[in-house]
Simulated assay, not measured.
Amino acid sequence: MSTSIRCLIVDDEPPAIRLLENYVDKVSFLELTGTTTKALEALQRIENGDVDLVFLDIQMPDLSGIQLSKIVKDKVQIIFTTAYPQFALEGYALNAVDYLLKPFDFERFYQSILKVKQKDTLPTNSIATKEYLFVKTDGKNNYEKVYITDILYVEGLKNYIAIHLPNKQIITYSTLKHIENALPPAIFTKIHKSYFVAIPHIQKTDSFHVYIQNKPLPIGEKYRKHFFEQINKKKL
């Protein structure tokens, strides 16, 4: 990829395009190559090799963003922009860089851009892609593959972390701060100084706990407001 990241905005809503144009214009290393309201036109531009990064809406006429992503595969990097949180897991399974849930502010947008620009953001003791992690276990070269969508929550244990999966946990020498860079923020949220949880795996909440596989996890006072703001965005 060149010094400037060539990007394309694909959205069928003009106000959404204008917002992204404004955000892109504020970032010196982004070069806007064009915008389109048609996924088929975007496909042609990608096939021509003129694009490095696509800001891609999911709900599009003729061809959805998910379908387009499956067609282009690894030819470009993709940041999904959508008002529908239910597509987040599928988006990350397709190796999207990030998943921006509308409405999003410039700070959240810039966090996504840094994921594209910065390559040295992997947690200590892990090798990560956008779909899974290889987590170091016992031994010099022992790693275990962990799919992002299988992670229920991550627990901090002083100089170690425990990655909780449906049927087991993996403990590795690392910190929550390190693994945070590999966890998609549209899916994972910090509820306590010692816990990151996967929102799709939450069964229920009360004022002080979230429940995952019937296990209560504490919500810290510092994180309560932000957590329930996220939950309210996804309620019926």
Rank of each mutant, 00 (worst) to 15 (best):
residue 176 L to G: 12
residue 176 L to R: 11
residue 176 L to V: 06
residue 176 L to M: 13
residue 177 K to C: 07
residue 177 K to A: 12
residue 177 K to N: 13
residue 177 K to G: 12
residue 177 K to P: 09
residue 178 H to N: 15
residue 178 H to Y: 14
residue 178 H to P: 12
residue 178 H to C: 14
residue 178 H to Q: 15
residue 178 H to A: 15
residue 178 H to K: 14
residue 178 H to G: 15
residue 179 I to Q: 04
residue 179 I to C: 00
residue 179 I to L: 10
residue 179 I to W: 02
residue 180 E to C: 06
residue 180 E to H: 07
residue 180 E to N: 04
residue 181 N to T: 08
residue 181 N to Y: 10
residue 181 N to L: 08
residue 181 N to M: 08
residue 181 N to I: 01
residue 181 N to G: 11
residue 181 N to D: 08
residue 182 A to P: 01
residue 182 A to C: 08
residue 182 A to V: 10
residue 183 L to S: 01
residue 183 L to E: 00
residue 183 L to P: 04
residue 183 L to C: 01
residue 183 L to G: 03
residue 183 L to M: 00
residue 184 P to R: 02
residue 184 P to E: 04
residue 184 P to C: 05
residue 184 P to V: 01
residue 184 P to A: 05
residue 185 P to M: 10
residue 185 P to G: 09
residue 185 P to R: 10
residue 185 P to L: 10
residue 185 P to K: 11
residue 186 A to G: 11
residue 186 A to C: 09
residue 187 I to P: 12
residue 187 I to A: 11
residue 187 I to S: 11
residue 188 F to L: 10
residue 188 F to D: 08
residue 188 F to R: 03
residue 188 F to K: 02
residue 188 F to M: 10
residue 189 T to M: 02
residue 189 T to I: 03
residue 189 T to V: 03
residue 189 T to N: 04
residue 189 T to K: 03
residue 189 T to G: 04
residue 189 T to W: 00
residue 189 T to L: 00
residue 189 T to F: 02
residue 190 K to S: 07
residue 191 I to H: 04
residue 191 I to V: 10
residue 191 I to L: 05
residue 192 H to R: 03
residue 192 H to T: 06
residue 192 H to A: 01
residue 192 H to Q: 04
residue 192 H to D: 00
residue 192 H to Y: 03
residue 193 K to F: 07
residue 193 K to E: 05
residue 193 K to L: 05
residue 193 K to G: 06
residue 193 K to P: 04
residue 193 K to N: 11
residue 193 K to I: 09
residue 195 Y to F: 14
residue 196 F to C: 08
residue 196 F to K: 05
residue 196 F to H: 09
residue 196 F to Y: 13
residue 196 F to P: 03
residue 197 V to F: 05
residue 198 A to E: 06
residue 199 I to T: 02
residue 200 P to C: 09
residue 200 P to T: 11
residue 201 H to C: 11
residue 201 H to L: 09
residue 201 H to I: 08
residue 201 H to G: 12
residue 202 I to F: 01
residue 202 I to K: 00
residue 202 I to T: 02
residue 202 I to Y: 02
residue 202 I to W: 07
residue 202 I to R: 09
residue 203 Q to N: 13
residue 203 Q to H: 13
residue 203 Q to E: 15
residue 203 Q to M: 12
residue 204 K to S: 14
residue 204 K to E: 14
residue 204 K to A: 14
residue 204 K to G: 10
residue 205 T to R: 10
residue 205 T to V: 11
residue 205 T to S: 13
residue 206 D to C: 05
residue 206 D to V: 01
residue 206 D to H: 11
residue 207 S to P: 13
residue 208 F to D: 15
residue 209 H to S: 13
residue 210 V to G: 03
residue 210 V to R: 07
residue 211 Y to L: 03
residue 211 Y to V: 05
residue 211 Y to Q: 06
residue 211 Y to H: 05
residue 212 I to S: 01
residue 212 I to D: 03
residue 212 I to V: 05
residue 213 Q to P: 09
residue 213 Q to Y: 07
residue 213 Q to D: 08
residue 214 N to A: 12
residue 214 N to R: 05
residue 215 K to E: 12
residue 215 K to W: 09
residue 216 P to Y: 04
residue 216 P to G: 04
residue 216 P to C: 01
residue 217 L to F: 10
residue 218 P to A: 08
residue 220 G to E: 02
residue 220 G to W: 02
residue 220 G to I: 00
residue 220 G to P: 02
residue 221 E to R: 15
residue 221 E to P: 02
residue 221 E to L: 14
residue 222 K to I: 12
residue 222 K to W: 13
residue 222 K to Q: 14
